[in-house]
Design a binder for these strands. Structure first.
Length: 590
RNA sequence: GGGGGCGUGGUGUAGCUGGCCUAACACGCGGCCCUGUCAAGGCCGAGACCGCGGGUUCGAAUCCCGUCGCUCCCGCCA
């Protein structure tokens, strides 16, 4: 037996116990006589002492030991001498007096330090991911993720859900993101696709009468990476029958409220119940449909005050159906012209052509790019609208609505981070509802579903689908946490006629629709219950709960930004024989 | 597809308005000393020719061009 105990569990109460421990050498301190070894396993760290005159052989063995060697140590638990305790260590009251030190496997010097949390180039970490995962931080993240998933499974089970696995080899649906394709050997020229989500399958499980389904589901999307996006990711996939929007939202809210309390007690919810914003409200107040509610600095509409104000930029902005909106950067009136120009540069990529400012210095002086154009009462009204006080800096963008929202929304987040307004221990969950059912795609010249093509429109808005599709609301809801969309769901269509109508609306040829989704349409004719669901992203959620800023930190073996696994070297070329079996010829490898 | 940032010993950085750099510092690594530390300590030492290629120059880590890699972002993500 290698282990009688783990390295993290021994306490003063174990004094005198003979133990056998096994783990990695976290650190070694050689005092010429006595040698200290910090032995680490997944459960903690314990100090081993090897005295030359207590057990010469054990001491001799400890001389050759280096960091990250794998050892088995037999010894006796001793209370540490008075004053020698280490309060920074859970096992700091005791130490193990070594009787035998056995080197199970030596280790090369690792390419980066494992026993402290120092920045290391990420490609090096990813190449040696198995070493990176030994670090306290990464081990903690993996444990956190396990606890999150465990809590979810227990909760779902307790609420009558069953976990059903759905296929990884499925059918391509080019309507959504790019699919990962898997060639079929048995069907030359044909392909499976990896699921972008188990959407269709979970709906078919509702047809099957499961009523309450969930799955910790792996999803695949072949799109470009971001700090919060991986080509394969995990979502808590949920679907329920005989439910309305409120039922699904209530379940998810209860689940995650309890999860936070149990799994990350050090963090606290900003609000419970979670605030609920309509899409329109989220855009108007925060410029985004995934607003960070941890701080205020809300956008204010000043279009009415800008109109006929005499300031050309404002008037022209309004003239073409545009808005003027502003935000109040509290207490930053002293920012220099240069700093404000930098903010303009920050929002320029989002289409903003200018950034008007009004700084109310604490001395009562006004610095502004436009104040001289405005009448005194307008200026007053403007300040009142933004609840400005001396010391505040007011920033305005005038443009078409999409540009105003995009640039001020981004600017708000940027400023919030820069000014330290985002409390990392605060979890500001909220719901976004009443999304537009479809959005006009200028590129494709057609209506695109704002969620996915199985989402039901609000029933009272169905007539609008013919007259004014852009006005119709969808029965969609997004779960937002701090700065991230961590989940989305909807009530689905369960009626063939309505589903076909939606296909038609988004320009899906009926023949193509039947080819791709015929199984869905047919299923709807066999007694499909009203149903809906939600799919919270496990990776993003864990990222926020772990206090990480990149999704890779909560994934054991993530892909890099090029969607490559630099440790194993995936993707790789395939053997010519494999390709031949699959009837595949590689045309260009550039 | 586009834009920004970065690329110096094993790791993290400094140097980068060209010559004092035959590249510095910290950690790590090796050796020696040290019987109580816990980021142990002291002394000594090895280790990069500055991502790669080309150019400018008497002279380049430092300037220019190209290229590759990593990263952040835009597009994209039903």
């Amino acid at each position: 037996m290698y282990k009688t105990h783990t390295c993290g569990e021994l306490r003063a109460a174990h004094e005198g116990t003979e133990v056998s421990l096994a783990g990695w050498v976290h650190r070694r301190r050689d005092h010429g006589g006595v040698i200290f070894l910090d032995l680490r396993d997944r459960w903690g760290i314990v100090q081993i002492t090897a005295h030359p005159d207590v057990e010469p052989e054990a001491h001799a063995a400890a001389i050759d030991v280096r960091n990250e060697f794998v050892l088995q140590v037999r010894g006796v638990v001793r209370r540490r001498p008075a004053g020698m305790e280490n309060p920074g260590l859970a096992t700091g009251e005791i130490e193990i007096e070594a009787r035998e030190v056995r080197i199970l496997n030596p280790a090369r010097t690792p390419p980066f330090v494992i026993n402290e949390d120092k920045p290391v180039d990420e490609s090096v970490r990813l190449k040696y991911r198995y070493l990176d995962l030994r670090t306290e931080r990464m081990a903690r993240n993996l444990v956190l993720r396990h606890r999150v998933v465990k809590f979810i499974r227990d909760y779902m089970d307790a609420h009558g859900f069953i976990e059903v696995e759905t296929p990884i080899l499925f059918k391509t649906t080019p309507e959504g993101a790019r699919d990962y394709l898997v060639p079929s050997r048995i069907h030359p020229g044909k392909f499976y696709a990896l699921p972008q989500s188990p959407q269709q399958l979970k709906q078919l499980l509702m047809v099957a009468g499961i009523e309450r389904y969930f799955q910790i589901a792996r999803c695949f999307r072949d799109e470009d990476q971001r700090g919060d996006r991986q080509p394969e990711f995990t979502q808590l996939d949920v679907e329920m029958s005989f439910v309305e929007r409120e039922d699904v939202m209530a379940l998810a809210e209860d689940l995650f409220t309890r999860l936070v309390a149990e799994v990350v007690p050090a963090k606290r919810l900003q609000a419970s119940p979670w605030p609920r914003l309509t899409y329109a409200e989220a855009m108007a107040r925060f410029g985004k449909d995934n607003p960070d509610l941890r701080f205020a600095m809300e956008l204010k509409d000043v279009t009415d005050l800008a109109q006929g104000s005499g300031f050309k930029v404002f008037e022209e902005g309004v003239a073409h159906g545009g808005h003027v909106r502003g935000l109040n950067v509290k207490g930053q009136a002293e920012w220099s012209r240069k700093q404000i120009d930098e903010l303009l540069e920050f929002i320029r990529p989002y289409g903003a052509k200018g950034l008007a400012y009004l700084a109310l210095t604490s001395s009562g002086e006004v610095r502004s790019s436009f104040a001289k154009f405005l009448a005194a009462d307008r200026l007053q009204a403007l300040q009142a609208r933004l609840e400005a006080q001396p010391g505040d800096l007011l920033l305005f963008v005038a443009d078409k609505p999409s540009v105003v929202f995009e640039s001020l929304g981004r600017l708000r987040v940027h400023l919030g981070e820069r000014l330290g307004l985002c409390d990392p221990n605060l979890l500001a969950f909220c719901w976004i509802v009443d999304f537009p059912f479809v959005v006009w795609s200028e590129a494709e010249k057609r209506w695109d579903p704002s969620h996915h093509l199985f989402t039901s429109p609000a029933l009272e808005d169905i007539p609008l689908l013919d007259s004014a599709p852009g006005q119709a609301r969808g029965q969609q809801y997004d779960m937002v946490l701090n700065n991230y969309e961590v989940g989305g769901g909807s009530i689905r269509i369960h009626d063939r006629a309505l589903q076909e109508k939606v296909f038609q609306l988004i320009g899906l040829d009926p023949r193509v629709a039947r080819e791709r989704f015929g199984h869905m349409l047919e299923a709807f004719e066999y007694g499909t219950p009203p149903h809906g669901g939600i799919a919270p992203g496990i990776d993003r959620l864990c990222m926020v709960l772990a206090g990480e800023e990149n999704i890779r930190e909560v994934i054991a073996f993530p892909k890099n930004q090029q969607a490559a696994d630099v440790m194993a070297g995936a993707p790789s070329t395939a053997d010519p024989q494999q390709l031949q079996e699959l009837s595949i010829r590689v045309v260009a490898a550039e």
